[in-house]
Design a protein around this nucleic acid. Structure first.
Lengths: 204, 204
DNA sequence: CTGTCATGATGACAAGTGTCATACGCCGCA
DNA sequence: TGCGGCGTATGACACTTGTCATCATGACAG
């Protein structure tokens, strides 16, 4: 196959970076021309090598995959970006698409999907994890008010009602009211579970 | 090279699992005979296939890599275990070695080290990340007993005292005793803070 | 200007949590 | 053989947390 898709790979964990590189490299039509351990290095490599595709993690040192995506979008628009991440958070997906990503793939998915996603994005298609895409539309919006969120966050870190009240200069009872409200909105049974649920949704 | 090292791989993220499998598979002397997405499946596969090496992540559904290591150690001692994890926590390393692991490798390291580590462990050597090994000697040891740890873990996820008691078939009061003890040992003021502190040290 | 909503408060009660003393059996180590 | 540590339990007490009713204020949309 003459037509080769050039890919740059950005991923901070060396072991995973190397393994993904091999995984993509065995495909006859894909060539990993370089890989980077952080966002800045990745941007430099994309500028130098002008790959058709950049595959990038989100959580990386120096600059995140989301920042990287936006920069690549502006500076080298001919390179399309596939986000590859652990996090199935609707908030991340939305921000990734806003930043101009063409693909959003979860590390949970079978490894066979990666090369496929690269090919599809190379052909100009969008590839978004189906479960996650659905979630974004149903997207229950964050039911918490700012106050509730802030108080739940602190309580979720281990601050007692009294400590939260002092820190925010509220009465003790008010803090308990907000927590009660938050617990009820989230369908939890106590502050710890409430904080955990909210965190999972990306609301904290 | 006739002698092939049979490996079972346990890692919950499909993408990483597939990629690591390919990475190890390209080595002429290593064969990945199966891979699992959780601890229970991994244990089953080890029992069935009796590989020389099990490469496992720590944080997995159903049972963790540390529990898995202990079980493999007891049931199939001829299989040696290499832990492959994101977490450079001394507590994890200590528990991994206590559980009978022969290798402890970080996902941060270059991917070339994985096959090497597998070979060394297969030869009967121990392979431990050097930076982490140093830390273990200075590190305060985990002050929690197994029971305290398990109970604190559950409480830290939002289970109430009553739920924990039911799940572990303990009396309500006993659970509160353990939590009280754990909170005091960790110098925390409540279960949430205690869980947070323990997690940061790698004790949960 | 009226209804709705977020913020903030109080008081009361029920439920859950943290602490302490005390106790028993088991195991391993000296 | 005895001591210490672990696991488990009970009862009692104080304290924290969760729920509910009720109220007051200010902002904002209709």
């Amino acid at each position: 196959m003459a037509k080769t898709i050039k890919v740059v790979l950005a991923e901070d964990q060396g072991m995973v970076r190397g393994a993904l590189s091999v995984l993509l490299g065995i495909e006859p039509d894909i060539e990993v021309v370089a890989s980077a351990a952080d966002g800045d290095e990745a941007l430099r490599l994309v500028g130098q090598l002008r790959p058709q595709i950049l595959v990038t993690d989100i959580e990386m040192p120096k600059s995140t995959g989301l920042e990287l995506t936006a920069r690549v979008r502006n500076l080298y628009p001919e390179t399309r970006v596939v986000i590859l991440t652990t996090f199935a958070r609707p908030g991340y997906l939305r921000r990734a698409l806003d930043a101009g990503a063409h693909g959003y793939l979860l590390k949970d998915r079978p490894s066979t999907e990666l090369a496929d996603a690269v090919r599809r994005v190379h052909q100009g298609l969008r590839v978004v994890d189906p479960g996650l895409a659905a979630e974004v539309w149903n997207a229950e919006p964050d039911p918490l008010t700012d106050r509730e969120r802030e108080i739940l966050r602190r309580a979720g870190e281990g601050e007692s009602t009294a400590e939260v009240a002092k820190a925010l200069r509220l009465s003790d009872g008010t803090v308990r009211n907000y927590l009660s409200e938050a617990i009820s909105k989230l369908g939890a049974h106590n502050r710890v579970e409430a904080a955990r649920l909210a965190r999972a949704k990306g609301w904290l």
